[in-house]
Design a protein around this nucleic acid. Structure first.
Length: 824
RNA sequence: GCGAAAGUGGCGGAAUUGGUAGACGCGCUGGACUUAGAAUCCAGUGGGAGAAAUCUCGUAGGGGUUCGAAUCCCCUCUUUCGCACCA
């Protein structure tokens, strides 16, 4: 017989929601705990990744509820964006309709898993009451000078008809559709995230972030210290600033390398005839997409522009080349090339026969130009560098920089790999950018009182190749808020990462119609105590959200510096050794398993199979194992219900207790301690659950018939503890068992159970005995035995005698309560 | 190439600060119950030797520190993840 999980789960899910136990109280006197799991795209189908994520979050939330915190665990939907648009196209409907349908389905699925979400705070990014405040934040950013528009080369996907962030290009292909990405020059809206680069490098506000994620963000931001040096052009107006971390090599510059996107190159191209070598080369390179250009096997190529600039330090004429290996986005978008001391420049110079000049000598072994096979990039002694000759190159970095600054040829500076965040998307299903273009007044912000700029419904989704918003003429044509003349709306919508960069704050005051959220609520709830999400968000979402948070702090919306105190990056769900995905055909539908075994079983398996930060291998037999365990508990309680009801909550006198029962009591309190520690200190639910399983085995081995009344009290306690310990993992069955046992309040109110230390004191200890590190015997002694006595007794053990025969015992080490080690 | 994490039975994984390696679960083997199956219960389960007591090998490989190492140190290998023409 299986336990009636179906009825039980439905029953308790209804009770919890009816009683509103997951509804958090704003600004209460109680201490708050904010648990947040990454909100999903409402696909209409819960998948195992969700189940894993939210099972972890719910375990934390429920445990904190038991501890008496005012817990908020909200849920919402990241519902703008291409997947929702594509979903509607496939179903021949409108994304507004399909999205709301899918949200209803998913809310039902979450409830059927028993996740404790506060539905009063539900957020969906495509609803006007949410995206209104996204537009409002855009405006505040604009006013702060953090928004700008520039013409730039962008990754363009023909198939999706949209611009992609560099991060959204994977191996030269669109991360969503997999089609090849091209380069296109367009006007784009940008957020000046680089303004916050320095602050984003400060991780001191994180209480508990995985080192891995911090390292990834640091690398992503990629700060380096160097010097900006200005090379004037030989002819005509203008100069070329370069950024270098190696100013010590400045006297070895033999050419200047520019990317085809460089503004000087664009200018020279206009001056030249079509079909010149330079034009042909630039065309060719620009057609290749960025990822391909920066792939490590790409051959370095270039064309001489026929122009020169002047090395400001020695007046040398320096050839200017257009190349495919310089990145427009990094530094100043120009490289002073020093073939003798940079491998990339070396390769390029060798290919095009450009001179090489040694300016740093290897102190170990003299460099001779004709014998060199690669660049010398190590530090050394300065040569051919005028007044700096003889200096250590490491010192010359500072000295030359000082000289450059003194002579007004440049300045010391920092450079970041991080680039500004292009947020323009030429798509329909996104948050409209609140901008109006007026022929008279130029770019005008939509006034606050006109927000939100509603996304029009009557557009032809998916029919047109261009942005559908261009076809919504009634919406597109408007009047200028400044001059009242005819004007057009901005048709770009925002990247959905913008929506997800501040949703956490909206949860603190999700229904507020007057502001994004009140300061009072935000100050009470933020920062988030525990955030749980996948590692894939390490560099994008988590960095963007930190940027937004810091911006919101700067305009006085929030007080704390960081949004997420603790971060848990949970592992993926694996099946047959690969990540579950549609393309691999190894998807498992959680719904099937909820129907067959119940939500508690699915949750239990997810948490038991591995620690949360590691991948979970989905295993059908393992699920059955989890189910079996719950059934064993159910039977145990049913069979002994009369004892539990009669004896639980009585006090056991320490008399007439058999050894077995004493051990059972030890097991009870040991398990309580273990479960609490595993959850509080490491969030290792797998070992916490294993401890309860072990305890169940201990309880099961007790013969009930022979127990005295006093012993039955201890036996009843051993059973009654189980639902209280498992509640965060399998809440439904635990509530039911607790009620069966006579419990009158819900388990989160009953609270955490703490162990009693005196029951963990053993009066007899088993010492393993090692001789030269090898286990040779065991010794049972009363706990009070003095160390000298233990030493004596250990040497008398039969098997020990056998092994020390004929040898000299040099030393006997007794580690109290642990072991005895004998050195011979 | 740089950076990070990891490598333990047939499998997922335990071993929190150096102290009985393999908890717990799955799988497998044998048994009980049953007309039979399912379910359940009992026993066993790292390799090798042995009737057993017990011995021996064993945490990717090699070396070291220690009474004692999966754990600490050095070298090598492998895997995963992140970054990478970053000037």
């Amino acid at each position: 017989m299986e336990y009636p999980f179906h009825e039980i789960e439905k029953k308790w899910q209804k009770i919890w929601i009816d009683k509103g136990i997951f509804n958090a109280t704003d600004c209460s006197d109680k201490e708050k705990y904010f648990v947040l799991s990454m909100f999903p795209y409402p696909s209409g189908k819960l998948h195992m990744g969700h189940v894993s994520n939210y099972s972890i979050g719910d375990a934390v939330a429920r445990y904190k509820m038991m501890e008496g915190y005012n817990v908020m665990q909200p849920m919402g939907y990241d519902s703008f964006g291409m997947p929702a648009e594509n979903f509607a196209i496939q179903h021949n409907s409108h994304p507004r309709l399909t999205t709301e349908d899918n949200i209803d389905i998913m809310r039902g699925q979450f409830n059927s898993m028993g996740f404790g979400f506060d539905w009063d705070r539900e957020v969906s990014t495509c609803r006007p009451n949410y995206y209104k405040w996204g537009q409002w934040l855009f405006k505040r950013m604009y006013e702060k000078g953090l928004v700008y528009r520039k013409k730039s080369f962008v990754n363009w996907c023909d198939d999706c008809q949209t611009v992609l962030a560099n991060e959204q290009v994977e191996d030269g292909a669109c991360w969503r559709c997999g089609k090849e990405v091209k380069q296109k020059e367009m006007m784009q809206w940008f957020f000046r995230i680089t303004e916050y680069a320095e602050q984003l490098l400060d991780f001191s506000g994180m209480i508990d972030w995985p080192e891995r994620v911090i390292t990834m963000q640091k690398n992503w931001i990629g700060k380096s210290y160097g010097t900006e040096i200005v090379f004037p052009l030989e002819e005509g107006e203008g100069d070329i600033p370069v950024f270098t971390t190696r100013p010590d090599t400045i006297y070895g510059v033999t050419f200047m390398a520019l990317p085809p996107e460089h503004h000087l190159v664009r200018k020279w191209l206009e001056e030249e005839k079509e079909g010149s070598d330079m034009a042909a080369f630039c065309d060719k390179v620009l057609k290749e997409d960025k990822a391909e250009r920066s792939a490590d096997d790409t051959v370095k190529e270039g064309v001489f522009t026929g122009r020169y600039c002047i090395n400001p330090l020695n007046g040398d004429k320096v050839q200017i080349w257009v190349t495919n290996y310089v990145l427009m986005e990094y530094g100043t978008g120009a490289v002073m090339a020093v073939p003798a001391h940079d491998q990339r420049d070396w390769e390029f110079a060798a290919k095009y026969d450009i001179p090489v000049k040694i300016v740093i000598q290897n102190p170990e072994e003299e460099l001779v130009l004709d014998n060199m096979t690669c660049a010398y990039t190590e530090p050394g002694v300065m040569v051919a560098s005028k007044q700096f000759d003889g200096m250590k190159s490491t010192d010359a970095i500072t000295e030359i920089s000082k000289y450059i600054e003194a002579e007004n040829m440049g300045k010391r500076t920092e450079s970041y790999r991080l680039r500004d965040w292009g947020i323009s998307r030429q798509r329909y299903w996104g948050n409209p950018i609140p901008i109006i273009h007026c022929d008279q007044c130029g770019t005008v912000l939509v006034p606050d009182e006109d927000l939100p700029v509603l996304l029009p419904d009557d557009v032809q989704v998916g029919k047109t190749k261009q942005n559908p918003l261009l076809s919504a003429e009634a919406w597109l044509n408007t009047t200028c808020p400044k001059c009242g003349g005819a004007a057009k709306r901005e048709t770009d919508t925002m990247d959905t990462f913008v929506d997800s960069s501040w949703y956490f704050a909206r949860y603190t005051d999700a229904l507020n119609d007057d502001q994004p959220f009140s300061k009072e609520n935000a100050d009470y709830w933020l920062p988030i105590d525990q955030y749980i999400g996948g590692i894939e968000h390490a560099c994008m979402h988590l960095l963007y959200a930190r940027f937004f948070h810091k911006f919101m702090r700067d305009i006085g919306l929030v007080s704390c510096d960081e949004p997420f105190s603790r971060l848990l990056t949970q592992g993926m769900v694996i099946k047959d050794g690969a990540k579950m995905s549609k393309s691999k055909g190894n998807m498992v539908d959680p719904g099937d398993y909820i129907d067959r075994y119940g939500a508690d079983t699915v949750r239990l398996f997810m948490l038991f199979a591995s620690p949360p930060e590691k991948d979970v291998e989905w295993n059908d037999e393992g699920v059955v194992g989890a189910f079996r365990f719950l059934n064993r508990i159910w039977r145990l309680v049913e069979q002994n219900l009369h004892i539990v009801k009669k004896f639980h909550k009585h006090y056991a006198e320490d008399i007439e207790i058999s050894r077995d029962i004493k051990e059972l009591r030890y097991s009870t309190h040991f398990t309580i301690k273990k479960v609490n520690e595993d959850i509080r200190e490491r969030m290792h639910f797998n070992t916490a659950i294993a401890a309860v399983m072990e305890h169940l085995n201990n309880v099961s081995s007790i013969k009930v018939e022979n127990l005295t009344d006093n012993e039955k009290v201890i036996f009843a306690e051993a059973i009654a503890v189980i639902p209280r310990l498992l509640y965060p993992f399998t809440p439904h069955i635990c509530e039911e068992l607790w009620k069966m046992m006579g419990g009158t309040s819900l388990l989160h109110k009953v609270g955490i159970i703490e162990h009693i230390e005196k029951f963990l004191v053993k009066d007899e200890i088993t010492y393993p005995i090692q001789i030269m590190g090898k286990l040779r015997g065991k010794l049972d002694v009363p706990a009070s035995t003095p160390i000298e006595e233990i030493k004596k007794l250990a040497l008398e053990v039969d098997n020990v005698q056998k092994h020390i025969e004929g040898k000299t015992v040099r030393k006997v080490i007794v580690v109290p309560n642990k072991l005895v080690s004998i050195v011979v």
